[in-house]
Amino acid sequence: MTALDTQGPTRREPAPAGSRTGGPGAPVKGRARTALRLLPLSPAIVLMAIFLAGPIGYALYGSLTNAALSGYRAANPDFVGLDNYTRLLSSGQFWESAWLTLLFVVASAVIGQNVLGMALALLLRSGPKRLGSVVSALVVMAWVLPEIVAAFTLYAFFSSEGTLNTALGWLGLDGPSWLILFPMLSVILANVWRGTAFSMMVYNAALAEVPPEITESAQIDGASALQRFSRITLPMIRRAIATNMMLTTLQTLGVFTLIWVMTGGGPGTKSSTLPVLAFQQAFKFAQVGYGTAIATVTLVIGAAFALVYVRVLKPEVD
């Protein structure tokens, strides 16, 4: 058995999973055996290579052309080198959109969803149990709803004749047209409404893992509730916080439907985050090459965050 174990060139340690001869096909040795074992992976690899890696490679190439949506330049785009990128980096609209994306991600995900999610997780533990389960069911429902339904619902809520302004009217206030005057605020609040459930569930699970003995002993030593939370609970769940920040950031970076339905990126481009701008450039202004360049930039930003997540946080693989 040990002889067999050392044969495999790719095997580092005789793990329990690999400590038997791998069933049938045992006579096949070395690389051939590894290849045979990896065979079931091939459908997944082929599918992901064509439809996942394919578009990414195509994005890198397409962003270097002047492809149009239709007509001559759609079928025969010219290679224009880095023109799209130089145009992009010198365009005020791109930088405005990049700033809006940053604002959207930081305000709605990093701050909004994370803080509200944490607050809810804490409230669920200290508030009345039955009320807590009702609230968490409602929050989760907003998250489970199809994105486009959530978008319609929030469009109605923030409309100038919508529920929010009706409620403000009861208080004698004249609410503005939120979607037109404050489009970013509207979509940020909408994304908090829609996405908080995820953070709430992550933090709820994380808080349940903190042993109560530790906070209790700190309490006996005279630590206030705030001190116990900031000095003991937060440091103990910092991994969950970092992971959640990363995942909500990546999720929010790709948000399209919510913004598209609520404001269409407008008025003008006042709420066009990068995914919305890429879509507008490609399909509204028929500049596929330029839109692809914007998409590529967004993808690179996302990839950087994903890389940090995988490399620094190192989720358990085995």
Partner: peptide, 27 residues
């Protein structure tokens, strides 16, 4: 199976699952 390939493959697909796919809809 315990193979070195697994680790890199799993990290790659984890990376892939994080990418904002909406960004690539134009390409």
């Amino acid at each position: 199976y315990k193979m070195r390939f697994n680790r890199s493959f799993l990290y790659t697909i984890l990376f892939g699952s994080c990418l904002p796919i909406t960004a690539v809809m134009v390409p």
